[in-house]
Simulated scan of single mutants.
Amino acid sequence: MQIAIRRWLLLFVTIGSLILGACSTPPVASLNASDRSTGATTTQANNPQGSNLPKLEGKATVVLKVKGAPITIEVDGTNAPITAGNFVDLVQRGVYNGTMFHRVVRQPQPFVVQGGDPQGKDPKVPADSLGTGSFIDPDTSQVRYIPLEIKPKDGEEPLYSETFDKAGISKPPVLKHTRGAVAMARSSAPDSASAQFYFALADLSFLDGNYAVFGYVTEGMDIVDKIQIRDRIDSAEVIQGGENLKK
């Protein structure tokens, strides 16, 4: 029992270091990542439906290749249209190609593999310097942030810009942090997600209602289990459902 308690305490410290340590500068994106800007919340916070953001109306299938091995993700735009739409749009733009996985936490318990920082394309940027990058929309020259979007079980619409705790929601989300879940990383600001995402290496129910899951690994979880810090995404491709993306 004492060993189990020590392991969970270590896990708590690990989570805290991810959330707090990465946010020593003003926020943006990470289970946590931080950003050098001072306002992660933008007009999306006032317009939580994100009318100016890509949306995925339905589902799509994305294949990431890491060291030549495929990881297949079913992206769920039915229950997370903005979050899923943002991810599929970034895949189609080639944003993730060549980016590095900069955070891998497997001890004391399996936790997450995190990547997607656009700065990770640059081989000169070390992994320990990543976690602060976001997607800059070339059309606006501004960082694209998306609102926190989590749909409660039996809910008709997702909750935007609030965690379940803050909104007083006791029901679980439709998209849970089970092993193989793919979710958006963010800072302490709820509307600070941009490009960084993570794979859940185990069932992480304590993250439910706080971070936005938008899909699940359907094939290649054994590849995810082998990812190490500094491994790169060779390519990311939408192989099905791309027509469901509405810009």
Rank of each mutant, 00 (worst) to 15 (best):
I5W: 04
R6C: 00
W8S: 07
L9K: 09
L9D: 07
L10T: 00
L10D: 11
I15D: 01
S17V: 03
I19D: 01
G21S: 02
C23P: 00
C23R: 13
V28K: 06
V28R: 11
S30F: 06
S34W: 08
S34R: 12
R36Q: 06
R36N: 09
R36T: 11
T38I: 14
G39P: 00
G39H: 15
G39D: 14
A40V: 01
A40C: 13
T42R: 14
T43H: 13
N46V: 07
N47S: 11
S51K: 12
S51I: 12
S51F: 11
N52F: 13
L53F: 10
L53N: 09
P54V: 03
K55S: 11
L56F: 08
E57Y: 05
A60D: 12
A60R: 03
T61Y: 08
V62W: 09
V63M: 05
L64F: 15
V66I: 15
V66M: 08
A69G: 02
A69V: 01
P70W: 08
I73P: 02
I73Y: 08
I73F: 08
E74V: 13
V75E: 02
V75K: 04
D76Y: 02
A80V: 13
P81R: 05
I82Y: 02
T83K: 03
G85P: 05
N86P: 02
V91F: 04
R93I: 00
Y96T: 02
T99E: 09
F101S: 02
R106M: 10
F111H: 06
V112G: 02
V113Y: 07
G115D: 04
G116V: 07
G116N: 10
G116L: 08
G116D: 11
D117L: 04
D117F: 04
P118H: 13
Q119E: 14
D122N: 15
D122P: 04
P123Y: 07
P126G: 08
P126A: 09
A127E: 15
A127K: 12
D128A: 06
D128E: 14
G131T: 06
G131F: 11
S134C: 13
S134T: 15
F135V: 12
I136L: 12
T140G: 12
R144Q: 15
P147Y: 08
L148M: 12
L148Q: 06
E149Y: 03
E149C: 06
P152G: 13
E157G: 00
E157K: 14
P158A: 06
L159Q: 11
Y160A: 02
Y160F: 14
S161V: 03
E162W: 08
F164R: 09
A167W: 02
G168D: 13
I169N: 09
I169E: 04
P172C: 00
K176D: 03
T178A: 10
A183G: 10
M184F: 15
M184C: 05
A185K: 01
S187M: 01
S188W: 10
S188Q: 11
S188M: 05
A189E: 15
D191M: 04
L201Y: 06
A202K: 12
D203S: 10
L204N: 05
S205N: 09
S205M: 01
F206Q: 14
L207E: 02
N210F: 00
V213R: 10
G215A: 05
Y216T: 13
E219L: 05
D222I: 08
D222R: 09
D222Q: 11
D222L: 07
R230Q: 10
S235R: 07
A236L: 06
E243K: 15
L245M: 12
K246S: 08
K247P: 01
